[in-house]
Design a protein around this nucleic acid. Structure first.
Lengths: 222, 222
DNA sequence: CGACACAATATTGTCAACAATTTCGTCGGC
DNA sequence: GCCGACGAAATTGTTGACAATATTGTGTCG
């Protein structure tokens, strides 16, 4: 062996797919918005070929929709699709909670409790945005601790179309308190080393989250 | 209104992504195999740009892996990844079985029973390939009847990397009989209108499928 | 014979130009 | 004022050429 093989450096410039993904996540690009190739070209400095490849990739990931001769637009999730996504979340995060009990190490358990305390500190201060971020982190940590990268990846993708929704419900102080109580139940089941109880509690937590959402939606539209 | 708006016809030629996806599913392209752009160009008649866009899309779908300056190759699933995929299947097909009880109409229930009878006819004839196809259809119909297109889509993607594996286990006659018995249990739960029992039976069915697989793998490699 | 340097080839990365199609604005008729 | 025809602009579809990198082949030296 002569030399450490240098890691193959990426082709060049910034990754358009990542750039776009970020802007969708941050809410800078709203659902339904059209993604004009030349605009992205101007804003990123990349050529159209790269932009087109990135958009195709994003359609593969299910983030954007491409219509012939009409280009790409940020995919919109209908109410029915949101329901279906939540159903998938119930299944996946549920089993992940059970697997967290089975597989997570002490450090991950500790970090989960730390995050929980931070979440609790948001209740008094009424900080919904911060709560939303920490909540995302909490759920992410739980899935990570389950030791299943495939499920983690699927959940990341499923969450993108409903990213904004995940934050909106936390502007209601009651919802915050209920969510924290749910988390506490899940953590209790984890501490008791009871996978089934953890799974059941997580399922209930997410189902409640959806019900809160549909209530909001009903209010807004009705 | 002057004329029926003609559906926007697709740009041109065949869809490279679909063409490649098919060849992967059919086993014509094995995991790890490199996908050279020019080769696909020659075989499909498309230009390289379109091939590149298709490959990017397929990487977005998780079917292929693209390394800088080395191109695309059919993604290989490690044993650990297969385990994780099965864990996700347990969660998703489990909840789908429960939702089938809640949402499927009479026609879908009838078709499920029809397929089951066809599956049973394979046991005597010892037709593993046919059994594999019908089995895929059976599981597909169940998810379709659950009324959740999101879960159906996720499962389709998850199944691609393990497509061959799904067939291999059925070359064992015992496994065929066990699988059919599992299906019968699930159908019994459906007929009894018991979602929880259906979910539990489906979970067990898929978990058993994975155990059979790991046994085969152990045998082959050990 | 094996290891290394170096050239030749194969393959991927990038870009700009042109063609096809949609979208938008304008104008005339009723 | 509304509707359609029609042309201009905007946008996407497609292709080919060239640059950068990796892979393979070859010959020389020890």
């Amino acid at each position: 062996m002569t030399e450490i093989t240098s890691p193959p450096r990426s082709p060049s410039g910034i990754d358009i797919a990542e750039w776009t993904r970020d802007r969708i996540r941050k809410g800078r690009l709203v659902p339904g918005q059209r993604l004009v190739e030349v605009d992205i070209t101007r804003q990123t400095g990349a050529s159209r070929s790269k932009v087109r490849e990135a958009l195709q990739r994003l359609e593969g990931e299910g983030l954007v929709q491409i219509d012939p001769f009409r280009g790409a637009s940020v995919r919109t999730a209908s109410i029915e699709e949101v329901r279906q996504i939540y159903r998938a979340r119930i299944a996946l995060e549920g089993i992940a909670a059970g697997d967290f009990v089975r597989n997570a190490d002490a450090g991950q358990r500790a970090r989960l409790r730390e995050l929980q305390e931070k979440l609790e500190s948001c209740v008094a201060g009424n900080a919904p945005e911060r709560f939303g971020r920490l909540n995302t982190e909490w759920h992410g940590l739980l899935v990570e601790g389950s030791g299943n990268a495939v499920i983690a990846d699927v959940l990341r993708r499923l969450n993108v179309p409903i990213h904004r929704l995940l934050f909106e419900s936390f502007y209601n102080a009651d919802r915050l308190r209920v969510a924290i109580a749910d988390h506490a139940l899940i953590i209790a089941a984890i501490d008791a080393n009871d996978p089934d109880a953890a799974e059941a509690a997580m399922r209930k937590h997410i189902a409640d989250g959806f019900h809160t959402l549909s209530a909001i939606d009903h209010e807004v539209r009705g």
